[in-house]
């Protein structure tokens, strides 16, 4: 165990070196918030999902480590203070995108941005095709290795999505999600307005924010409250109308914002903004985004093989 790297949704992350392979790994400790409820269901979800996923742009779960408090197995149900810790083991990645962007000495060429965007979208598309909503898309959750590989991490909020595909028999169509997901700056307008029946488009909003962040070198919308967050979004994307966001007036959270002065969309349509469309149904999907000509225009996405950090 080397040093603490940070704290995630429900676990601390440590850097460590494996005794077996000698490789650097990141250990994510599952925090027991509520002792009464055992291992948090979110942690189990994360494990369950990660065990199932395998994609170059999704962080792989290498192993699980359980440290024991109990001395022998024979008496483990008789001793009461025998709780150990559970760690998830991930390969160590050199950076996260948020840190990289804060670092003034790091320059990102348009080619590199395209490279990262392409990987981010590949990963997102993989998740969505597997019916998983990540629900916490943000720069800090995107890990980047020195070899230019981007991986989506932190599935602490991820859930199976609504879709025609069955999720092991659960009738998900009736399920309503909590709208208290996604870090505020990356939260799409429909969530801010209180939608509980959302879909994959919420992840795409986050992807769009991340992309803008790569150009601007700062988060796109740094709202200080949910309302302020909406104001910032309206100022870029225009206020919602029945035309650009059908049904918005029916969302529970819209009361406070109904009488806002009209603002027009200030930026013309381009690739980035196709992910930042107010109407979640018109927002581009990961698969469509990957086909976008943006990736086929000069400058072409950088080649990770030539990537030197």
């Amino acid at each position: 165990m080397l040093n603490k790297l940070g704290e995630g949704t429900f676990g601390e992350v440590h850097k460590a070196r494996s005794h077996v392979t000698g490789q650097l790994v990141a250990l994510k400790r599952i925090l027991m918030h509520e002792e009464r409820e055992g291992i948090p269901i979110t942690a189990l979800r994360e494990v369950k999902l990660l065990k199932k996923l395998k994609h170059p742009n999704v962080v792989p779960l290498v192993d699980m480590v359980v440290t024991k408090g109990a001395q022998t197995r024979m008496d483990y149900w008789s001793t009461k203070d025998s709780k150990g810790d559970i760690y998830m083991v991930f390969p160590y990645m050199d950076h996260d995108l948020a840190g990289l962007l804060e670092n003034k000495s790091v320059r990102l060429s348009p080619g590199q941005i395209k490279l990262y965007m392409q990987q981010l979208l590949e990963g997102t598309d993989y998740l969505h095709r597997n019916n998983i909503l990540h629900r916490d898309m943000k720069a800090a959750n995107l890990l980047i290795s020195n070899a230019g590989v981007l991986q989506i991490a932190d599935f602490g909020l991820a859930r199976p999505g609504h879709s025609k595909l069955a999720w092991d028999g659960i009738d998900i169509r009736k399920t309503r999600y909590t709208n208290c997901v996604v870090t505020r700056w990356y939260r799409p307008p429909e969530l801010l307005l209180g939608e509980t029946n959302y879909g994959f488009a919420i992840d795409m909003w986050g992807v769009g924010c991340v992309m803008g962040e790569m150009w601007l070198r700062r988060p796109m919308f740094c709202g200080s409250s949910d309302l302020n967050q909406l104001e910032k979004i309206w100022s870029l994307c225009g206020t919602p109308t029945e035309d650009n966001m059908p049904g918005w007036g029916l969302l529970p959270g819209c009361e406070g914002v109904k009488n806002w002065p009209r603002q027009e969309r200030t930026v013309r349509q381009n690739f980035e903004l196709s992910m930042l469309l107010l109407d979640p149904n018109r927002r581009i999907t990961a698969a469509q985004a990957l086909d976008h000509e943006w990736f086929w225009n000069d400058p072409m996405p950088a080649d990770p093989k030539t990537y030197v950090d």
Binding site: R36, G38, Y76, W77, K80, S82
Partner: peptide, 12 residues
């Protein structure tokens, strides 16, 4: 409590 503890070993 014993269930919580057992959960641990079960998962492992």
């Amino acid at each position: 409590q014993s269930i919580a503890e057992m959960e641990f070993y079960l998962l492992e």
